[in-house]
Design a protein around this nucleic acid. Structure first.
Length: 798
DNA sequence: GCTTAGGGTTTG
């Protein structure tokens, strides 16, 4: 799945046997394996991660030099890249670059009615897919960091290619021991990579050429993807930098430093479609000629197996065969055996073994319709293949090599006796070991064999396979990235950023992939939020100990006050206080409130500025708070006057209530120093009382969404500027509460309306300290709601 | 770090 950055403009490294097809001429269900499409990247979508190592990226390319009379506008087409190619494209290609695509398939564009682009899209996936990229005008000496990085990690092959040295190949009949050579050959035997006793995987193969020498080769590579992609005997392989050894009276080849390998289909007339195992490789017309020569020579030698693989319908008992199929489900049987449930769209004429598995151990559907069940084959894979089977996913297209159809009742692990007595049924076994090339390979989704298989499978109704185009349809439904012109739904943006960073907008998917500690700009919609009850969004925060606590509800506070008001125990007021007693009319007998005033304030004529109040209920306190600027509720404790428990407000100022931090306060009733102070506020009182004042903060958790992902973010430190309202006002003022309520209703309409406005937000990320390991926490900052959309327009009188 | 494997007459 390579991506090539061309150094000398397009054309220099693109295989010459391919012919270019105009974008306007692309039609569905046609084989374009011998064609290229060329266009300028006019839109580059975000890299979307569907699963680990499974990427998808959508881009739009536009033909620049189409026929003048073909259309008034140059044709554009959606191009969908899957897998590693998507990731490479995301990192390497920029808008404005020109790309040549090869090895693509053509599908129906699910977004054609919305984006009004080409009715088809180009799908680039798997091995045949290849992109050649050229920059508008590459600066001579200023290589991008990426280029530099690439060139340092390139294999020997490509660094030589950069120096444009001609690669020479040695015929298999001319090999001398003890040299490093480049060779071409036709594969006559191969094993899929298997784990060696050393550190690497090992591919063992045998090749031949016109010399008729059979040369054994061994490839050691740590990574599976760097192994030769051999699908069947007869494939043509090109290896660079293999070392010749003498072993058992013949020359063998082993990879050495700078090794690279490319394979090709070995059939005359098939598409060239190189299958490289390195990120870059060179392929010129001479290579093409060599492959074609080997193909026709091999055909004359009948080196290709007459029938490469056989369908289930042609399986005969006792035979060993290769099967090309799709995996629908799998289940472990025991530690040495795994069941693969596969189909190839044909029905085996023999009755097939049924295998019972433990419930809930099946990956993929655990049962199928009776009609589908008739087409399924149960394959038992053993020993070393169990490990490989673990990597397989339902939906994968597989080739299973040297599969055995065992007739009769066979003992199968996990079977009940009644099943094992099934007479004359076939069981498919992939025996342990790698002899005879036994193994499993995942075939790339758009390899010709898989394309053929897909055509067969698609003719069946209710296909449960993982369907890329369905996936795309789902993925393409919401609008794409912020810069995409194709935002179809609401385009109203109701917020703006006030930060000073110049970071480019990113998708949520991209944001999630970033390490914490950065700022991000996103354009998103609000999917949901918590808490739905606004009063729960208000919390109390201590700037000293950094703890956050809920605002106690009225019922609780009320119970604290009533408890204290019923306490008849006397207390001696402090010496500085002027105390008085008020009987509460109409209440239970003996209940009285006591009020205490600061003598100093009294002397300054500020009588109404502060009142210490004992024995009042919450309701009475609130009522009195309208007449006094500050009311501090107090109670008796062991004969002394103390503040109430700090879980209750320690101060009432009008409608506002103030709380102290229970951890950081050392509270005691003291006379505030009011000298030179015009107005006594909560800070002066808190300080006098030794109370660490808690800050009312507004916190919400918002679930954001865009076309690529969803993301939970917190609104806290910048919540007040976000809503243009102070948390303190929200805590005490109905109007401020209404404002938030309306804002949230507008961003996230109740009843699940999808027409949600867009928000331009600035996010910062940090590593969460007390959460589970490695969690990143996102916070909205420097962002303000600028307009509200109300569904019901309230007519304003002129 | 420089080994690993070097087909093969086919278990369940």
């Amino acid at each position: 799945m390579p991506l090539h950055v061309l150094s000398e403009g397009p054309g220099s490294q693109i295989p010459t046997h391919l012919t270019r097809v105009s974008i306007s001429l692309i039609v569905p269900r046609t084989d374009y394996s011998d064609n290229t499409v060329k266009g300028k990247v006019v839109h580059k979508g975000p890299l979307v991660s569907l699963a680990e190592d499974k990427y998808i990226l959508k881009t739009v390319i536009q033909e620049e030099d189409s026929q003048p009379n073909s259309s008034s506008q140059n044709p554009s087409i959606n191009m969908v890249l899957l897998g590693a190619l998507a990731k490479d494209f995301s990192q390497t290609v920029n808008q404005g670059d020109t790309v040549v695509a090869t090895g693509f398939t053509v599908g129906k564009s699910p977004t054609a009615h919305k984006d009004l682009l080409h009715p088809c899209n180009l799908l680039l996936s798997g091995d045949p897919a290849c992109l050649y990229v050229s920059r508008p005008s590459p600066p001579v000496d200023s290589r991008s960091p990426l280029r530099v990085k690439r060139s340092t990690t390139l294999s020997g092959e490509s660094s030589r290619a950069a120096k444009s040295a001609k690669v020479s190949y040695v015929g298999l009949g001319e090999l001398k021991p003890g040299s490093v050579v480049n060779v071409y050959g036709v594969v006559t035997f191969f094993k899929q990579p298997f784990k060696s006793r050393g550190t690497d995987f090992c591919t063992s193969l045998k090749i031949t050429d016109q010399s008729n020498q059979r040369i054994g080769c061994t490839v050691f590579r740590e990574k599976l993807e760097e192994h030769p992609k051999i699908f069947q005997i007869g494939d043509i392989i090109r290896m660079h930098r293999v070392k010749t050894h003498f072993f058992n009276d013949s020359i063998t080849l082993v990879n050495t430093f700078g090794f690279s390998v490319v394979t090709f289909d070995g059939c005359v007339g098939k598409a060239m479609a190189p299958r490289p195992s390195s990120r870059t490789f060179q392929f010129d017309p001479e290579d093409q000629r060599t492959v074609e020569e080997l193909r026709s020579w091999a055909a004359s030698q009948s080196l290709l197996p007459p029938v490469p693989t056989i369908p289930l319908s042609d399986v005969t008992p006792k035979a060993y065969f290769d099967l090309t199929c799709q995996l629908l489900a799998k289940a472990p049987i025991d530690t040495t055996c795994t069941l693969l449930r596969v189909w190839d769209g044909t029905r085996c004429p023999h009755s097939l073994l049924k295998v019972l598995v433990e419930p809930n151990t099946t990956e993929g559907p655990s049962s199928f319709s009776p009609d589908r069940e008739k087409l399924l084959a149960n394959i038992l894979v053993y020993d070393n293949h169990v490990e490989y089977a673990r990597r397989l996913k339902p939906g994968d297209f597989l080739r299973i090599y040297n599969l055995r159809a065992i007739p009769g009742s066979s003992k199968v692990p996990g079977l009940t006796s009644s099943q094992s007595e099934q007479a004359e049924c076939l069981a498919f076994h992939l025996h342990g070991g790698t002899a005879y090339g036994r193994g499993i390979r995942v075939l790339p989704g758009n390899s010709p064999d898989v394309q053929e298989l897909k055509r067969v499978l698609e003719s069946f109704p209710q296909v449960d396979e993982l369907n890329d185009s369905e996936l795309l349809d789902v993925w393409c439904t919401p609008p794409e990235s912020p810069d995409a012109k194709a935002i179809e739904c609401s385009t109203v943006c109701v917020s703006e950023r006030s930060c000073s960073h110049a970071v480019q907008p990113e998708t949520l998917c991209e944001v999630k992939l970033c390490a914490p500690g950065r700022s991000h700009h996103v354009r998103v919609q609000l999917r949901s939020y918590q808490p739905l009850r606004l009063h729960q969004a208000l919390r109390l925060y201590c700037t000293r100990c950094k703890t956050m606590q809920d605002v106690p509800d009225d019922e609780y506070v009320s119970s604290l006050f009533s408890g204290a008001s019923r306490d008849p125990s006397p207390c001696s007021p402090p010496a500085w206080a002027l105390s008085g007693r008020v009987d509460v009319p109409g209440d239970a007998p003996n209940r009285a409130m006591s009020v205490h005033l600061s003598t100093q304030l009294l002397s300054e004529g500020k009588t109404k500025q502060l009142l210490f109040l004992k024995g009042s209920t919450l309701e009475e306190t609130c009522r009195l708070a309208t007449g006094f600027q500050n009311i501090v509720p107090v109670m008796s404790s062991e004969g002394h006057m103390t503040l109430m428990d700090l879980s209750a407000p320690f101060l009432f100022r009008g409608r506002k209530r103030y709380y102290g931090c229970p951890r950081c306060s050392k509270a005691s009733v003291k006379e505030p120093c009011s000298e030179g102070v015009e107005l006594i506020d909560e800070k002066i009182i808190a300080e006098a009382l030794g109370v660490k004042l808690l800050q009312v903060v507004l916190t919400m958790k918002l679930e954001l969404q865009d076309a690529t992902d969803t993301l939970d973010v917190y609104l806290w430190r910048h919540a007040e500027s976000f809503f243009s309202v102070s948390a303190e006002d929200v805590a005490s003022n109905q109007e401020a509460q209404n404002r938030i309520r309306q804002t949230m209703d507008s961003l996230c309409p109740q009843g699940g309306s999808t027409d949600r406005p867009w928000l331009d937000l600035c996010l910062t990320s940090c590593r969460a300290e007390d959460e589970e390991q490695n969690q990143t926490c996102f916070q909205i900052c420097h962002s303000t709601i600028t307009k509200l959309l109300t569904a019901r327009s309230d007519p304003q009188p002129a």
